[in-house]
Amino acid sequence: MPRFDDQTVLVTGGTGGQGSSHVRAFHAEGANVVIGAIDAERGAALADELGTRARFTHLDVTDESSWSAAVLAAESTFGALHVLVNNAGVQNPPAPIEKTDQATWSRILDVNLTGTFLGIKVTAPALRRAAGGAIVNIASTMGLGGTAHYAPYVASKWAVRGLTHTAALELGRDHIRVNTIHPGVIATPFIQEPAAGATAAIADFYSPEPFAIPRLGEPADVTRLLLFLASSDASFITGSEYVIDGGLLLGPALQAETG
């Protein structure tokens, strides 16, 4: 039996490279999927592609009323909400702290941090009404260490870690589990194309050659872990962090000569 039969999953940023991978996989596993995004054309197209058990809802993650409308859409269409995937995120154009303007700082934290906070805040009552469920926050390996020229993004993802731990403590007795995934360099437009206002993409700064697993990650790599954490197979896991980076954070895999 598919793992998510009779369950409803809301994925934010559901039209992006990782988000659309997550949406398709949950749907394939039997879930009703709610595609939350600001790109109505792509969101509607994805919902049409999937057909039954899928709907698009416009969702600006920085707006609490938009979150309330998304939860209403999920419950009115499918009866309940069981899983939230806080996937939506934006990058800052690379710049040292001294040359990072406050508007950029505020925008990145509004989407990456406040958007995650509002998602937890607004969906928690719905998950409680469904007798429990799971929240998975998509952070980044940049939330586990410093990265020059990406201060807003790094700060937002570090903060998501603390938010996840706190939410796990507050919601555990309601049978709502909250966990975080930290992807490394994943082959999506988010990584491979420059952020707004930038001339270089994050992928330009990373060669996978030194990784223990010498390739870029694929969205499916993240999706498979996400499906596990959102499922009943992970029923005793909460407040945990999972790194999926091919060994990026381990340091270079130096190969000794043999023979």
Rank of each mutant, 00 (worst) to 15 (best):
D221H: 02
H175A: 13
W158T: 05
P194R: 09
V160R: 03
E170H: 04
R173F: 06
L163W: 02
A187R: 11
P214W: 05
E218R: 15
P210I: 01
I176W: 04
R215W: 09
Y206K: 13
P208H: 07
K157Q: 09
A195K: 04
V185A: 13
E170N: 06
R177K: 02
I186D: 04
W158E: 03
L163F: 05
P208L: 03
L163E: 10
I191S: 13
D204N: 13
R161A: 14
T164C: 11
A159E: 05
I213P: 02
L216I: 08
T199A: 14
V185C: 09
I202N: 05
T166L: 14
N179T: 08
A220S: 13
A212L: 08
D221W: 01
E209M: 12
E209K: 12
I213S: 08
V185N: 06
D204H: 07
I213H: 00
G172A: 14
A167H: 10
T180R: 06
T188E: 09
D221L: 09
L163T: 11
I186A: 04
F211H: 14
P214F: 06
P219E: 03
Y206C: 12
F211A: 03
H165V: 14
A198C: 03
R177L: 10
A187T: 00
S207P: 04
V222R: 00
A167P: 11
A201I: 01
A200F: 13
Q192C: 15
E218C: 00
I176V: 14
R215H: 07
L163M: 12
A168F: 05
I202T: 12
G172P: 10
P189H: 06
V178N: 12
G162N: 11
I191T: 15
F211P: 02
W158N: 07
Y206W: 15
F205I: 06
V178F: 01
I202V: 14
V222Y: 00
L169E: 14
I181G: 01
E193W: 01
A200M: 05
A159G: 14
D204W: 00
T188I: 07
P219D: 02
E170F: 11
T164P: 09
Y206G: 04
K157I: 09
Y206T: 15
T166H: 11
G184F: 11
E209P: 01
V185Q: 02
P208F: 09
R161L: 13
A187W: 00
R177C: 05
I186L: 03
A195H: 07
G172S: 12
S207M: 06
L171S: 04
R215N: 11
G184S: 08
A198Q: 09
T164G: 07
A200L: 12
T199K: 15
D204T: 13
T164R: 08
R161I: 15
G162K: 06
P189D: 02
G184I: 10
R215C: 04
A196P: 12
